[in-house]
Amino acid sequence: MVSVLLIDDEPALLEIGTIFLERSGDFSVTTAGSPGDAVARLEEKRFDAIVTDYTMPDVEGAGFIREIRSRWHEIPIIVLSGRSRDEIAADCLGAGADAVLRKDGVPAVLYGSLAQVIAGAIREHRSRAGVPEC
């Protein structure tokens, strides 16, 4: 089972994301409603991937990505945002994110795509670290 930390300041989006990801049976989701909560969770537990909103109170996406990447460099980071992907992709990827997805459209399609992106990012990180696939 893939352990995912889902970070968003909107509780409804945390709930929807958890439902869709856990429904497959492949993901176990822990949520955090703020960057501070996310750091506390990361200090308590090991995660296979991080999925974070771009815009949250007290921190803009790239700053938070840099903070996570500086301390937990081995964990894939996927950014979800309501902003246009083109608008933030260079900023996020330059800060260390592995992928950027736009939060729009049908939730089942979005979270289906997210599940594939998470799996791909984990494979890529493990491959770079020389960890064989199971």
Rank of each mutant, 00 (worst) to 15 (best):
E133T: 03
G112Q: 07
M56E: 15
S127Q: 11
L101Q: 08
R41G: 07
G33D: 10
R23S: 15
D86E: 15
A62N: 10
T31S: 15
G63L: 06
A40I: 08
V59L: 12
I77Y: 13
S113V: 07
V100K: 02
S3D: 14
A121S: 15
E87K: 04
A99R: 05
L80K: 02
A49I: 01
V79D: 13
P76Q: 06
S81Y: 14
G112S: 05
Y54D: 09
S84W: 11
E60I: 09
V109W: 05
A32K: 08
R85K: 12
C134K: 03
S84F: 08
V2A: 09
P107V: 00
K45W: 14
R69S: 11
A12M: 14
D8G: 09
I88N: 14
G105N: 07
K103H: 03
Y54E: 13
V2L: 09
E10D: 12
R71Y: 14
D48H: 12
V79W: 14
P132D: 14
D98F: 00
L6Q: 00
S70T: 07
R126Q: 11
D53N: 03
T30Y: 06
V79R: 02
D37S: 12
V131I: 15
V106C: 06
E44L: 12
S84P: 00
G120M: 09
A62T: 04
